[in-house]
């Protein structure tokens, strides 16, 4: 065996003459570099990144956007949404307490004016019902963790949320269609006019007395355009989130669409609270418009003077015949109930 080892030693000695690379005691393990790269702590050329099975986001080693999205949801969205929605609710409550219900100052004339067609009401209520469903289910997804789950337990609360989420998923696309129809249906009368500025300056009559308004006042017009614009953003982003497995959008994109969706939805919900309040219990004679399609002529005169003027000026027998103005003094059951 010695014979075997001798040439080995000789070989070593011979090889020893070759120049050697100077040691670098500060050299770090390549693993460190890799993990730094993975965490994006330092710039690093990751070259081609591949994984099996191929495709999708399996090749993404670290989802860097995840933390930012978490911060957004937990530190911004949830607290801000809570404040905004709560703030609006409180504001409405205060407004109610301070101002009380807004009466028809001239009292009911008994004369009914046709304000919305049956189709318009159908569209409105479709959108409204879907909106409420979506809003409630959305709110549960946003805040449910803090009340539904502790209150109902994870099993039942989870199941409830699961079904609400499914309702949200399935009614979303329908809502989108309904919203589109509503935008078209209600477009007439919602274009801004100069006198709307006056309405705005007078804060709809709260400051400085009577504020002029057409078929829709500036507030309603604002709501319309908000619902149309932001609403469509929410609808489109919602559709993106609705079909995750179609693979058109990656995780980062979906997180961004989620941001749009949630911000838009919170904005609409906040404003919708005002709309719902105004449309229901805030003022006498408002709800019946959308409930029955007719409003009291005095209510129209007081709140939509320009519109009232326009239709009364042009009022002709044919209008009566077509039912635009209904002379019958008998209030409908719904109206009565409202008035009561």
């Amino acid at each position: 065996m010695l014979g075997l080892l001798l040439p080995f030693a000789a070989a070593l000695a011979a090889a020893g003459d070759e120049p050697r690379v100077a040691p670098d005691p500060t050299a770090v393990s390549p693993g460190v570099e890799l993990w730094d790269a993975v965490r994006e702590r330092q710039p690093f050329d990751a070259g081609q990144v591949r994984t099996q099975p191929p495709g999708g986001e399996r090749g993404v080693l670290i989802n860097v956007g995840g933390e930012a999205w978490r911060q957004f949801r937990m530190q911004e969205l949830i607290p801000v949404a809570a404040r905004v929605l709560g703030g609006v609710a409180i504001a409405i409550l205060l407004f109610r307490l301070l101002r009380g219900k807004i009466p028809i100052r001239a009292g009911r004339s008994g004369e009914k004016i046709r304000r919305f067609s049956g189709f318009q009401r159908l569209v409105h209520w479709t959108v409204a019902v879907l909106f409420v469903l979506l809003a409630l289910s959305g709110l549960v997804m946003l805040f449910g963790r803090y009340f539904i789950i502790p209150w109902l337990g994870s099993e039942f609360g989870g199941a409830l949320t699961y079904w609400l989420k499914r309702i949200h998923d399935f009614s979303g696309p329908v809502f989108g269609v309904a919203l589109l129809v509503m935008i078209i249906t209600f477009m007439k009368g919602n274009f801004p006019a100069l006198y709307d500025l006056k309405w705005v300056f007078k804060a709809g009559g709260m400051l400085g007395g009577h504020a002029p308004a057409g078929r829709y006042n500036a507030g309603e017009k604002g709501w319309y355009w908000l619902a149309a614009g932001v609403g469509m953003v929410v609808v489109v982003s919602g559709l993106v989130l609705d079909f995750p497995n179609l693979g058109g959008f990656d995780r980062d994109a979906m997180a961004w669409y989620h941001r749009l969706h949630s911000i838009g939805a919170v904005a609409i919900m906040a404003v919708s609270m005002g709309h719902i309040y105004m449309g229901t219990v805030a003022m006498e004679g408002a709800f019946e418009c959308m409930a029955t399609g007719y409003c009291d002529s005095n209510w129209a005169r007081e709140h939509h003077d320009r519109w009232y003027a326009a239709i009364t000026d042009e009022k002709s027998p044919s209008d009566t015949a077509t039912g635009l103005v209904e002379p019958a003094p008998e209030p409908s059951a719904a109206t009565r109930q409202q008035a009561g």
């Binding site: 670290i62 989802n63 933390e67 978490r70 989870g158 989420k165 995780r251 997180a255």
Partner: peptide, 17 residues
Amino acid sequence: KDTCIGCGYCFYACPFG
């Protein structure tokens, strides 16, 4: 899984996919 609603939020947030 009985509670999970399949919203995908965990997927957005998870660093590791």
